[in-house]
Amino acid sequence: MIIDAHVHSGGWGGFPTEAVIRLADRVGIDKIFATDFVALHYDMKEGNRRLAEEMKKYPDRIIGYASISSARFGREAMDEVRRCYEEYGMRGLKIIHQVVGLGSYQLLTTINEPAMYPIIATAADLGMPILAHSTPEECAGILDAVPNARIIMAHSGGCPTALGDWFRAIEVAKHYPNIYLDTASSQIDMGYVEAMVAGVGADHVVFGTDMPLIDPFFGLAKVTGADITEEQKELILGKNILRLIGMGN
């Protein structure tokens, strides 16, 4: 089973969720673990509610991330995470740092701030893995504050704010067993999937595509074409994320 643990639903880039499901069908992706575009970037309640409706429409295809746009909503965000888990059946949390203006590499907000820790702790207590669009150091800081959280480091350094530095991502993850590395990125530096597996083990690498922004055929090929074993590919492509949400061994 192939599960894409890094998907955007709800109309991102002009692609409605139905189109994302059709795209997953073309690629051969069985389930998508999705975050709603509106929830992550504008209104968490509106977006999470929309995603809940889509999860009802595609119960066998969509696993939901609760999303929050900022830790600065405080108690409201904590309550929203809990509600997404209990009422909507969402099984993960998506958080993102924000940058100073479109295309900037400079952070406006960090996810590693005290206001975020109670939200992370809420997700951790509920057993929700946290997909964190962040730098490696932000992930480390969160785990210093909330050690029982399980963080999937979105893009594994392969995003502009982390300057594409997957090597640093692996080095940080080596010191934090609760960090998992996400394969989603525009970057395809040759050898980096193999380096992730060598650095943290195949059981700590999670397949993601970032569709519909990034081409999922492209994202899948970097895992299937890597020089790792078939068993390691199976872990990365689905078994690990199932285990993280309590649906696998």
Partner: peptide, 17 residues
């Protein structure tokens, strides 16, 4: 593809599909 700095297979896959 940008190989060998980049993996060749993703470039082939995105074009073929």
């Amino acid at each position: 593809t940008g190989m060998p700095l980049q993996y060749p297979s993703p470039g082939i896959a995105k074009t073929a599909n």
